[in-house]
Amino acid sequence: MFRKNLVGWAFLVPLVAYLLLCYGYPLLTTVDLSIRDYTVRTFVHGGAQVIGLANYGDVFADPVFRTALLNTVVFTVASLVFQYGIGLALALFFSRRFRLSATLRALFLVPWLLPLIVSASTWAWMFNSEAGVVNAALAWFGLDGVNWLTSPDWSLVSVIVANTWIGIPFNLVVLYSGLRNIPAEVHEAAALDGASSWQAFRHVTFPMLRPVSAVTLLLGLVYTLKVFDIIWIMTRGGPGGSSTTLATWSYELGFGSMLPRFGPSSAVGNVLILMAVVAGLVYVRSQRHREAS
């Protein structure tokens, strides 16, 4: 038993060393940054006073914090719901065999392959108030143009649309192969019992898809929580903070102005990591529940 553990850890050593070096040390740095009162001078020459959690206090007291937190939640939840919902609908659609279905399904993956900076720029250009194609389309239907990126009411919607678009392919691929793994006999049995296709979906397909759905949503959460490039390129979190999330706020504090505020910036970053830990715990618990039941 002891020997088995030893061999097991021998295989894990490179990974653990890597995690300590590439995650542990940088994270220690941000914790250290977040509990000190940095000025430019003390940042460069050292000797910044440890002020405990004062940076966190400042961050929580800042009115931007509430907006950023709310936006983070709305952005994450809305992106997940739409990515998953549309992805599932498409997966069901493509699971029927029809001419060109394989080709079209492959084409759906293209958005996934574009570098985020490219997708974000493309959407920003399409959403442009003056020369964007979206407003041109609205005008064609006789509707007024919307200031997608420059109105505080729409900026968050715009970045959610773009992020959903980017996330659909992933959801489609995973859910599609999840559907394919459900044995055909199950459907046939349901059909023999006279279930409508909606009933079959609701009572047979969807429950059987649950493990795949859980992983899809978890991975979706993982990547949505840390989305930064899309929002930064499309709106810079603006106008007036209306599309700021914790990730963009952390960046803005640290890098967005001429005078970086590394302390509060790291504090916001650590709050985000804390949220990740909580999400991880929730997932692990739900996983245990399932195994227990």
Partner: peptide, 12 residues
């Protein structure tokens, strides 16, 4: 902006 002398896109 209100009088449409300037486009709304100036905000971004």
């Amino acid at each position: 902006l209100d009088k449409r002398y300037a486009p709304n896109s100036v905000v971004g």
